[in-house]
Design a binder for these strands. Structure first.
Lengths: 333, 333
DNA sequence: CTGTTAGCGCTTTCAT
DNA sequence: ATGAAAGCGCTAACAG
């Protein structure tokens, strides 16, 4: 209940000046042993911890970074956040996480908010705002962003090879003998979805298969959309032996759609996703998918940001996507 | 690149005193229209936003709350965090989220950290630390915690009825004619797991069925543990027609175990979980489970904390657990 | 209604 | 090696 003790209280109790206490706290200068001991005892006794707001105000560093996600409860972002969190451990930095809800305007609002809070840097995950906006904000604080290419001194981007990931997925299906491959895509205008579509088309083209737009159905990157998309395909009597879902969540929905119709996976139809969410190892059957290095992206983005904050430069790369073959794909009969 | 403008800059540009700017910012006192307009123009032009660290230092309020979770990437906490996030919207508060990693000591560390950051309050989700520790911390800042009963002026607890939830689950199985019901429990010494075990025992007792400890296998509240637990049951040739998993994640693992063995769910064995994670609606088949009001818990905890911070009192209750019947349970043949 | 003044708790010259 | 003093950006009396 007592008001938290201040550095001045500690100084008084230890019989030294505030500057001395500060020096000990920060290791800024040599202090005689006796004073050091007295101060440390006082700190201990008063259970003192420096007021970070005062420190921040003075030093111009809040020791806080801002993270912008699009959905605070999505396995996709969580896995990345875990990478962020682990990398922050022991650095003295904490993070405040805000959500842009897949909305560019809200995203701008949130970033302004973070800036007013004097975060020392920002990590933007799957941001909707333009590169120009980012660059503008980067004038205030360093920013690292996923899902785009960016290489200035204070703005960095890490982009995943969506096209190649999709190519790998469809290529896998083709290698298993599939020719009629449905595609559950993401929301229209979504960049990732478009790139994955391109990979789908390339793999098909390479095998001499024409893209049949009747076999591509729009989902929403969530289970419900994946389920409905596949449903539409069945309703219009499309014939296919495999489906490539633009992300794992959509694949889960597609899976349920087939379960409801009594279609066996992979015996009747093969299914492949994209992301490799933590849960995909435990679906029934475990989902074949394309792995995005989500955890590593969080880790690398964070380390990069920390380096930018220190005025350093960054050369890191994120690992490539890779195919993870599990049990929802099989050779076509 | 230019240093962010300060309130003094704004004052100077508008030709007024800093206090006037502050008054306009905070609506603290009446200001003549001409000055207000001049100031607002200056704010606009300079793109000024008050430095929250300075505000915080002065007002003794950081407008930040701390959230302690145990796992930053778990659907369980995510859903609760979504409730927290939604409730914070528009309040001016932001949250910094830290993880205790299911470890009491780390939890204490993290809470101290939050306190040094001068958070205005703390939400503790599934904390491992003792009530005494909480009460001690509550002397500094209000705390609301899930998973325990607490009713002081600055410390509040919201506890879920685990025992009853488990009772509901097992009762449902019994109503379907099941008599030999396996239980995949949580980690030993886990309080939630123990309470769910009690509910399991009560439902059995009520039906005149003896608890057979050979039918209870210890999991770890994760998929892997659930899978292994069920595996052990099969290896020792236990006979059962239904399994109650102490949480949904364990149920997913159990489900996979049965898939691997060619056991059909629910035709051969019924399965029920506990939590109703967002993903449980899309497992194959969709999981029957006991719903914890995770989102509401986040929402209510947050609203309660905000009220405590304002010095108010709280009478809210969290909604009760409820059975969600989906497709993994059926009448025993 | 508005300006002046005194800090919030800490760090950092500048002396000594 | 240590203390005194100034000040980070803002707000809140206190005058007027």
């Amino acid at each position: 209940m007592s008001a938290p003790s201040t550095l001045i209280d500690v100084a008084r109790m230890a019989g030294v000046s505030p500057s001395t206490v500060s020096r000990i706290l920060n290791g800024t200068a040599k202090v005689s042993d006796d004073k050091r001991i007295a101060v440390q005892a006082a700190i201990e006794k008063m259970n003192f911890a420096p007021n970070q707001m005062a420190q921040g105000l003075k030093k111009g560093r809040s020791m806080t970074i801002g993270i912008v996600v699009q959905d605070i409860s999505s396995p996709f972002f969580d896995e990345t956040l875990r990478g962020v969190d682990d990398s922050l451990k022991g650095t003295g930095f904490a993070s405040v996480i805000v959500s842009g809800h897949w909305n560019a305007e809200e995203e701008v609002q949130r970033i302004r908010l973070l800036l007013a809070r004097k975060v020392d840097g920002i990590i933007l995950l799957s941001g909707r705002i333009s590169d120009e906006d980012i660059l503008r904000f980067a004038g205030t604080r360093p920013i690292v962003s996923t899902g785009r290419e960016l290489h200035t001194a204070s703005a960095l981007g890490f982009k995943l090879d969506n096209e190649n990931g999709a190519y790998l997925a469809v290529r896998h299906l083709i290698d298993l003998g599939h020719r009629r491959i449905a595609f559950v895509t993401g929301p229209a205008n979504n960049n990732d979805a478009a790139e994955r579509m391109a990979g789908y088309a390339r793999a098909l083209a390479e095998a001499g298969i024409e893209v049949n737009m009747n076999l591509v159905a729009e989902g929403d990157f969530h289970e419900a959309g994946g389920m409905q998309a596949l449903n539409r395909l069945f309703e219009t009597n499309q014939q296919f032996t495999a489906v490539f879902a633009a992300n794992d969540l959509s694949a889960y929905g597609a899976r349920l759609c087939m379960y409801r119709k009594g279609i066996r996976v992979p015996d009747d139809i093969s299914l492949i996703g994209f992301d490799d969410l933590p849960g995909s190892e435990y679906t029934t059957p475990p989902l074949t998918t394309v792995r995005q290095p989500l955890y590593d992206m969080g880790r690398i983005a964070t380390q990069a940001l920390l380096r930018l904050i220190d005025g350093g430069t960054v050369t890191d790369q994120i690992p490539p996507v890779e195919l993870v073959v599990r049990e929802t794909t099989r050779r076509v009969r």
